[in-house]
């Protein structure tokens, strides 16, 4: 209910109507007509968002799931996952920073990007798909976020966990891969040391899952393993014209 009131009081009537459809305050509901991504997500706000107290990045642009039927997760070898992710599903797959509401066409699916804040440390992709009446099993999710760093940060690492396999890119370079049959474990796989640029950095991920719940958690940790918290996520500043190629990488 608080979510709806905040949107309405901002005078964004059109958005409010959409929000009422997608983010009703009621708890999860089995009825397709009344499904919701609440309480697992709220719409991404306009103000920059810091990571949570443990450094987890909660604000993401999430693409509705791409159908990719898989009977079991034990087939998610590195080769299989790379092939699955290197397949071009939509233009600019590895470069676009979309806006909330942008649509892409994948085969016979028309899929929308959603700018959301996860209410937990992890991003519950199953709840995202379920809440939108989209396929939940045998799917690929794409996720993008943009973080602003107050200064150049050397020797940080991206730490990720996912259910099931996933690959994560930082400023266009692959940073972390999680293959085989995985459950989401905090800091499951950690990247080599990398540098975050002063200003904008683009994080992109793809998660594939067969049966079971899909989710991920991503954060940056410093040389001591402590969470990097003095960064912010600001999807609004990225805009649809942003792309990874515009960001200098110094891996």
């Amino acid at each position: 209910m608080n979510t709806i009131r905040r949107i309405v009081t901002q005078g964004m009537c059109v958005l409010a109507i959409v929000a009422i459809q997608i983010y009703p305050a009621a708890a999860v509901n089995t009825s397709e007509a009344h499904r919701s991504v609440a309480p697992y997500f709220v719409p991404a706000g306009a103000a920059p968002k810091a990571p949570d107290t443990d450094g987890f990045i909660q604000r993401w642009l999430l693409l509705e799931p791409i159908n990719k039927p898989n009977r079991t997760n034990t087939m998610f070898t590195g080769t299989y996952v790379r092939n699955a992710f290197n397949t071009e599903y939509f233009p600019g797959q590895f470069s676009v920073v979309p806006n909330d509401g942008d649509k892409v066409t994948v085969g016979n699916q028309e899929l929308m990007w959603h700018a959301l804040d996860s209410t937990g440390f992890n991003v519950k992709l199953f709840r995202f798909a379920y809440g939108l009446n989209k396929p939940t099993y045998g799917v690929i999710f794409w996720a993008v976020t943009v973080i602003d760093c107050p200064r150049e940060m050397k020797n940080v690492r991206l730490a990720a966990g996912s259910n099931s396999a996933s690959i994560w890119w930082v400023n266009g370079k692959e940073a972390v891969d999680l293959f085989d049959d995985r459950r989401m474990v905090m800091d499951d796989v950690v990247s080599k040391r990398l540098t975050l640029n002063k200003g904008r950095n683009i994080i992109r991920g793809a998660v594939i899952n067969g049966p079971g719940l899909s989710d991920f958690c991503v954060r940056f940790i410093d040389e001591n393993g402590d969470p990097v918290r003095d960064i912010t996520v600001n999807l609004g500043s990225s805009g649809s014209n942003g792309d990874d190629s515009a960001v200098q990488s110094d891996f």
Partner: peptide, 11 residues
């Protein structure tokens, strides 16, 4: 043993 809660996938 790594300090990760089982609520965060530890074990």
């Amino acid at each position: 043993n790594m300090g990760i809660e089982l609520l965060r996938g530890g074990g």
